[in-house]
Design a protein around this nucleic acid. Structure first.
Lengths: 286, 286
DNA sequence: TTGCCGTTTTCATAGAGTGAAATTACGTTT
DNA sequence: AAACGTAATTTCACTCTATGAAAACGGCAA
């Protein structure tokens, strides 16, 4: 169903799938378990494990249990270091961190989740636990809603169809309808909130970051415990975070080129350059 | 080629190779450049890039330049978090860091290089620059020499044959002969030094970490600027770092079961020279 | 010993991946 | 505008690769 040709290289896809499998479990896996979890025949699994090990993406201990290997660390490090949105955002995140004294996150979408790409802890003793590289759902986090809200229409539809709105707290959004209403508001206001929708006692505010092509691939957020985040404070933080989002966007080249920059919400129709999007760029009202 | 059967899954190997290629350059690559650097035909490259992108290991920007993607970050993070030698070593590294007030590293071998797996900065204003995930040569670093010194004979031979002894400074070891002499000394003394052999003005001391099977897969080191690392200080640090290496080793199960695992003498001899564990298990010094 | 269970290897075969070449897209020059 | 050049993308017939059922192996326990 992927619009594209059957460009698939099964062997490669399987290998990468296995790596992701290993990333998702604690404490490694035996060949047997890999077979079970992946649904592949043991012999095939065995061959893959041998291959992944020879390139150091996996490492087997003396009990025959495989773990992620050093190449993964090297690769992750390189990816992290190269990600220039991160490098560029960093000083701004620091500023936001100092001015709010709360945990700040830089996030990007990966499929149906949002991944923390950078993080700065609150200086306060009461802190939020999170980790760079870990991922959170889109429908009940501030960063997630920002990312959703600025997707192009066709993409958004596809994603919404796939999302399962797991309820984490009693505040978690319950229906696509409701979510879409929120997204309209997010686009209009230029920021999104998470009011204990993902974790109890945790509230967040997030704003979009536009890249040079006018797309929103990243968002930044301020996260704090309920006690420090009453509505009044959120109202103070919102404009700040939105502004910093815009400043990062400019740094990334947003609005550099000859065309005007749409101030809020809607991502700019990435002119004829990007072929895939045909007509719709209008806001997703309803 | 590996001694093993031709278990090779070319498609997978190529894909992983490409990922490593991307990890080794700054600022992404176009399909063309990938073709050039990898020696693969463009059409093949294209197919691979499409596959890697669909699984988020790569990401292409609007200019058609590919970069490492979010999956790499997720994977790297997972690998880092799972690596239990790192988790176990951490408190010991902290202790070493506090007691020496210098940068400490935890390192593992990856092929012909040593990879930083964990790092703690010196509290002093004059610091060493390094990054988790990056790699350094084996022949001219303290950590590298430790890892080499405790390889099993056949493996060591293979590696030595492959090493090219690039000279980084005028102190860099110039011949395999000389290197082997050093390795003997490293095995005998239980630590290795790097006296400005890799970077000018930088000196290191490193000691081995044994795993439960009695193998040395990791080493830890103290690194400092020449001005703070006169020979007398190195002589002070050496026993300390060696002892901490041994304590980590015990934590990893080294010497638990009587598992002799016969090996060409070398690392056995190392075992016999382990000084009796000092009384203070968690000593914190002023 | 025998049986069990997981790992490792084998091997005939299907079909997946290949890459030269054609096509398309885009930017630059004439 | 047209012609050119470069790079991205797609095609397609062929080959060799990856596949996975099955068998062999190895360790462990009863």
């Amino acid at each position: 169903m992927t619009a594209k040709r059957s460009y698939n290289i099964t062997a490669l896809q399987r290998g990468l799938e296995l790596l992701k499998l290993f990333a998702s479990v604690e404490g490694g896996l035996s060949a047997k378990k890999v077979g079970l979890l992946s649904g592949l025949p043991v012999s095939t699994v065995h061959r893959f494990l041998a291959n992944l090990e020879s390139s150091q993406f996996l490492k087997s201990d003396s009990e025959g249990v495989f773990h992620l290997g050093l190449s993964c660390i090297t690769l992750g490090q390189a990816a992290h270091a190269q990600m220039d949105i991160r490098r560029i955002s960093f000083p701004f995140l620091q500023e936001l961190n100092q001015r709010t004294r709360e945990t700040v996150h830089l996030t990007m979408r990966q499929g149906l989740t949002a991944v923390y790409v950078e993080k700065l802890d609150s200086p306060e003793p009461l802190r939020i636990h999170s980790r760079i590289g870990s991922s959170v759902p889109l429908h009940c986090t501030a960063v997630g809603k920002v990312l959703l809200a600025h997707l192009l229409e066709p993409e958004l539809e596809k994603i919404l169809r796939q999302l399962e709105l797991r309820r984490f707290t009693e505040n978690t959004v319950g229906s696509i309808q409701e979510l879409q209403t929120q997204l309209v508001r997010v686009r209009r206001d230029g920021f999104a909130c998470d009011l204990e929708e993902h974790e109890p006692h945790i509230r967040c505010v997030a704003a979009p970051i536009w890249n040079h092509a006018g797309q929103v691939n990243a968002s930044l957020s301020v996260t704090g415990p309920l006690v420090r985040m009453p509505t009044t404070r959120i109202r103070q933080i919102a404009p700040l975070i939105r502004e910093i989002g815009i400043r990062i966007s400019h740094e990334l080249g947003y609005g550099k080129a000859e065309r005007p920059l749409p101030k809020r919400g809607d991502s700019i129709s990435a002119r004829s350059k990007i072929p895939t999007e045909s007509k719709s760029r209008r806001a997703v009202t309803s």
